[in-house]
Simulated scan of single mutants.
Amino acid sequence: MASNKQTEIALAAVKLFEQKGYHATSVQDIADEVGLQKGSLYHYIHSKEDLLLHIAHEAISEFNQRLERILNSDIPAEEKVIQAIENHITVSVSNLQTTTVLLREAFSLGEPQHQVIQDLTDRYLELWTEIIRQGKEDGEFSTSQSRVTALALLGACNWVYRWFKPDGKLTAEEVSREFSQVFLHGLLK
């Protein structure tokens, strides 16, 4: 379990990585943000890269756990897609800085840390693909390419972090409903 100071350091790193980028953020920047000497910061973290790995791992793990619950629920595939879209968008926008770090900065990790996040990201895609595949097998969906459909859904959902404004015209739930409408019923009348 993380100490209060470790949590404070992680939150400061998320803020700085989101604002400045991982490479432009120094360990000194993080230490300054939490009011520690650089040497004292290493009492709480091993390296800046381990901090990024921790942040990305927690973020993608939350996405996976939530989607696994949706996938394993006893509801029609259409409702699973609606819940999955709403889950992805609401989690993304309620943790906008962390989502930004996951989607934009996790690529900065070296091996084998990057592979850990890549494996979890691949798992997330597999869960989405399985929902689409179930809908196809149950006769709910007409797609011929479950994985490509899942990639399209994820591409749209992932991009929300770039344009969504918490104080904007639409709520996360309204954006989710619009995405569900487009993906499940298309643009044609």
Rank of each mutant, 00 (worst) to 15 (best):
R66F: 05
E58M: 10
A2P: 04
K15V: 04
I132S: 04
Q115I: 11
S47W: 01
S92W: 02
L41M: 08
D122L: 06
I60Q: 08
G135T: 05
I117V: 15
H57A: 13
Q113E: 15
Y161E: 11
G168N: 06
D167E: 11
P112L: 07
R162I: 04
I55G: 12
A172K: 00
P112T: 10
I70H: 01
F107Y: 13
P166M: 04
F107C: 13
G139P: 04
T129R: 03
K80F: 06
E126S: 03
E174D: 02
S40C: 07
I89M: 12
V91L: 15
V160N: 03
Q65Y: 07
G39M: 08
E105C: 02
N87W: 09
E78V: 13
S180I: 00
L184C: 08
V14Y: 02
A84N: 02
E178T: 11
L170P: 09
N87D: 13
T7F: 03
R66G: 03
K5D: 01
T99N: 03
A156I: 07
L187E: 05
N95E: 08
E62V: 08
L11K: 08
I132L: 07
A56M: 11
V27N: 00
S40F: 02
S26G: 15
L109E: 10
E174G: 05
E49M: 13
E79N: 04
A84R: 04
T98L: 08
G139I: 02
I85L: 02
I75P: 02
Y22V: 07
Q37V: 06
G39K: 06
Q6R: 01
T7D: 12
Q65G: 12
I30T: 07
E68M: 09
Q37H: 09
G186D: 09
L153R: 00
D167A: 11
T121I: 11
K48D: 12
H23Q: 09
E111H: 14
T129M: 00
D32W: 04
F164I: 05
I75Q: 11
R162W: 11
H185D: 06
A2H: 05
I9P: 00
H114Y: 15
T90P: 00
Q113Y: 12
H54E: 15
A10S: 02
A106W: 09
Q113G: 14
L96C: 13
K136V: 13
E8D: 06
L71D: 06
I132G: 00
H23N: 10
Q145T: 10
H57Y: 14
S73K: 01
S26N: 10
N95L: 04
E8H: 03
R162H: 11
L16D: 04
Y22K: 01
K80H: 05
G35S: 15
S108A: 14
E49Q: 12
K5S: 06
